[in-house]
């Protein structure tokens, strides 16, 4: 515990050092603020637009998280039939992989056309980008049960469904939860892209409109807030992981 605290302190020192160098470089080379704002001007901008930024941060986060929740639910729901039947897997999985090859950002104009501006394109883009990285490890864990374990369960009469419920699902849980970290960043990327293309709210929209006004410091505030929120949510997820699937990390309770 003490060790991890001192490491956190180290990271903070490095961060402060980077900011000081950044500030000095911009000052000494007289780089215009609209090209690269200094950390101090980013900080003062953040404080000045505090309410506005917070409102848009909340807007982005809610849409990204709803998208992630949909992606998680959908991935779990379809991994079950895919794990159960090889026929279903061989039929459906290549289609899903093929769909994954489409750059999802390119779908945003279509989503805006179908659903209008606002929440739907944001949630759907987050969902479409996040579900694949959640599905793959979850499904893989379900279909890679050792042959001997399978035989052991069959020897006392277990059916395929029982093996999936008693072994497949619990076995997949650590992979599912850790894939949510990946899904989390993906869903924020999705929402921000949709906000840039087809929305008039959220941090993606703020970034787009502030750079067009050459208010670069505000765009940087948005980037930092986005990084912070995904970092914090990822930490929350880690706590949940340790609680729910502590066995996978050999945490004695």
């Amino acid at each position: 515990m003490r060790l991890s605290r001192s490491r956190t302190l180290n990271s903070l020192v490095v961060l402060v050092f980077i900011c000081v160098v950044w500030e000095l470089v911009v000052d000494l080379l007289s780089i215009p603020q609209y090209i690269l704002p200094t950390p101090t001007s980013i900080a003062s901008t953040t404080i000045k637009y505090y309410d506005y930024l917070l409102r848009n941060l909340l807007d982005t986060s809610i849409h990204a998280l709803v998208g992630l929740a949909l992606a998680a639910t959908f991935s779990l729901a379809i991994s079950l039939p895919l794990a159960y039947s090889e026929v279903v897997r061989d039929t459906v999985y290549p289609l899903i992989t093929g769909f994954n090859a489409i750059p999802r950002a390119a779908l945003v104009p279509l989503l805006a056309l179908w659903f209008g501006l606002g929440s739907m394109p944001k949630i759907l883009t987050a969902f479409l980008i996040a579900f694949f990285p959640v599905l793959v490890p979850t499904l893989t864990a379900m279909v890679t049960i050792e042959k001997e374990l399978w035989e052991l369960l069959m020897s006392f009469g277990a059916t395929k469904t029982q093996i999936l419920i008693k072994v497949g699902i619990p076995r997949a849980m650590p992979y599912f939860l850790s894939s949510l970290h990946m899904g989390l960043t993906s869903s924020f990327v999705g929402t921000v892209i949709a906000e840039m293309v087809a929305s008039d709210s959220g941090l993606g929209y703020v970034i787009l409109s502030s750079t067009s006004r050459l208010d670069t410091a505000l765009a940087f505030s948005c980037l930092i807030l986005l990084a912070l929120i995904t970092f914090v949510l990822s930490k929350v997820l880690s706590v949940v992981e340790r609680r729910v699937v502590g066995w996978a990390y050999r945490v004695s309770t």
Partner: peptide
Amino acid sequence: NSFRVGVLFQSPLLLPW
């Protein structure tokens, strides 16, 4: 299979959760 068997393999195959 219609009588009860108990099987023990080389590896214990316990479920870690």
